[in-house]
Amino acid sequence: MTVLMNLDLQIQVLIDNAPQDGTTPKIMEAIAPVLKLVATQLQHSEYHILQTLDESWLLTTLSNRAQPEIQKNVIYAFGTLKDAADFQSVSDPEILAAAVPVTHILFQMLALDAVTSIVFFDTPGNLAAGTEVRRDELQTLIQTQLQHSQSVPRSYPSNLPPDIA
């Protein structure tokens, strides 16, 4: 199975699991190209996220060394289970690593107000270099996509000229 096909399946699961309120699945379909675009820039179709027993993702607060008052909250996503396990200096039975599809991570990040970004570690054994996906940049891409999808003309009766006979 190719990565793109896997991403399509992941997106379909998101759409299928969205509240069937007539709007949310359509929004999911509209933002799917953005989720796929960002996901294709990463190397894995799923990542391991450290989470607590109640399935809350582990948040790490980082401070700027030069300006400690500048902080950001990140979630780490590991390409391998071993990297996720190795990240914890002391094994904590309250913290588990869960495999999560990459598009689901990106979508979930949008709902996590406290998260500044997610750092994806793609290279096994290398926890020094990751790819940062910032929440605000992802939101901007999605807003642009939603505006574009809303500006596409549709053939609803409300789009018909008033003098049509």
Rank of each mutant, 00 (worst) to 15 (best):
N17A: 05
D163M: 02
S56Y: 07
K26M: 08
T80R: 01
V119K: 04
T40C: 13
V133R: 07
P33T: 08
A98T: 12
A97N: 04
E132H: 07
N17F: 02
H148Y: 15
S63L: 13
P161G: 11
E29C: 13
D113S: 09
I31L: 11
E55D: 08
M28Q: 10
S155H: 12
K26L: 02
L81Q: 13
D83H: 10
L138M: 07
I31G: 03
L110F: 10
V115Q: 03
I164H: 12
A66K: 13
P157Q: 14
N126W: 03
H104K: 06
S158C: 15
A30C: 04
Q143M: 15
L160S: 15
F87A: 06
N64A: 00
L146M: 07
S155M: 14
T80C: 04
P19Q: 07
V133I: 15
T52Y: 08
Y47S: 06
S63P: 00
R135H: 10
I31C: 07
Q41C: 06
E46S: 14
L138Y: 05
S56I: 06
L160C: 14
Q51I: 01
Q139I: 06
L58R: 12
I31T: 09
D136C: 06
H148V: 15
I105T: 01
F87V: 04
R65L: 14
Q71Y: 12
L112P: 08
L146V: 01
K72L: 12
E69I: 10
I27P: 00
I142N: 06
L106C: 02
F120M: 07
P33N: 13
L112T: 04
Q71E: 15
N17D: 11
A165Y: 09
V90R: 08
L62Q: 11
D21G: 03
K72Q: 05
S155P: 00
A114T: 04
L112E: 14
A98P: 01
I15N: 04
T60V: 11
F78N: 06
T52M: 03
K36I: 15
Q139A: 06
D113W: 14
D16C: 01
L58I: 08
M109E: 04
D83W: 10
T144C: 04
E69W: 05
M1R: 04
L146D: 00
L35V: 12
F107E: 06
A97E: 01
T52N: 03
E94L: 10
L9D: 07
T103A: 13
V34Y: 00
E55R: 10
I11D: 04
N159R: 14
